[in-house]
């Protein structure tokens, strides 16, 4: 009986793992994501932020260069998102030498980039890469980021070659660090 349960756990365990890394395997199997250029860039002096539609943005979800990517979906109008930005900044700094890169994906509304986003990024002195995802066909692309995502932000995707995790919730620095460690360690 115990053996049966153990086996059952093994099966579940394996199926979980397979699920988690399915996309990575697909990408390795030859399906390459085309690197499309941003559709525009918004600038304020030396500050420049690229704006992508989903087709252009997709490359940021499937990079296969051995690094671990922490992709945070946020917006200046989203209070809980703004509250957790310092944690992402700190994570990016503290794990930079471990091959971790943070990408802050702004979902600010079209027409507010110059007035809201650029001043915000400048004022907060954000060090992580900031890009804008501006594509109104949300029902098409939200499930492509993650099937379980309802579309609420903040939301965070972490991935490397072998693992993917997705969180539709606010995260503390401790959550972030623990999740990142779990992702890096389970190779």
């Amino acid at each position: 009986m115990k053996l049966h349960i153990t086996c059952a756990f093994f099966v579940i365990l394996i199926s979980c793992k397979t699920d988690g890394s399915k996309k990575a395997e697909i990408a390795e199997a030859g399906e390459t994501v085309r690197k499309l250029p941003p559709k525009e860039a918004v600038t304020d002096g030396d500050l420049e932020i690229d704006v992508y539609d989903f087709a252009g943005f997709e490359q940021f979800l499937h990079r296969q260069d051995g690094k671990t990517y922490v992709v945070n979906f946020w917006a200046t109008w989203c209070k809980p998102c703004v509250a957790e930005l310092p944690y992402f900044e700190r994570l990016g700094r503290e794990y930079a030498d471990k091959g971790v890169e943070v990408v802050l994906v702004s979902l600010d509304l079209h027409g507010t980039f110059e007035k809201k986003l650029l001043p915000f990024v400048r004022e907060k002195k954000l060090e992580s890469q900031v890009i804008v995802l501006d594509d109104p066909k949300q029902n098409d692309w939200i499930p492509q980021v993650n099937e379980a995502w309802s579309g609420a932000i903040p939301a965070t995707l972490m991935y490397n070659k072998t693992n993917r995790m997705f969180y539709e919730s606010s995260l503390t620095y401790e959550d972030l660090e623990n999740n990142l460690k779990a992702l890096i360690d389970t190779k």
């Binding site: 365990l13 793992k17 988690g20 609420a152 919730s169």
Partner: peptide, 26 residues
């Protein structure tokens, strides 16, 4: 020994079930 493996697996499973996609709208 079986119990130990069982416990270990439970822990691993618990961890992995957090690390894989959790349906947020369940």
């Amino acid at each position: 020994k079986t119990i130990r493996i069982f416990l270990l697996l439970t822990v691993v499973l618990a961890m992995s079930s957090f690390s894989v996609d959790i349906p947020a709208d369940d």
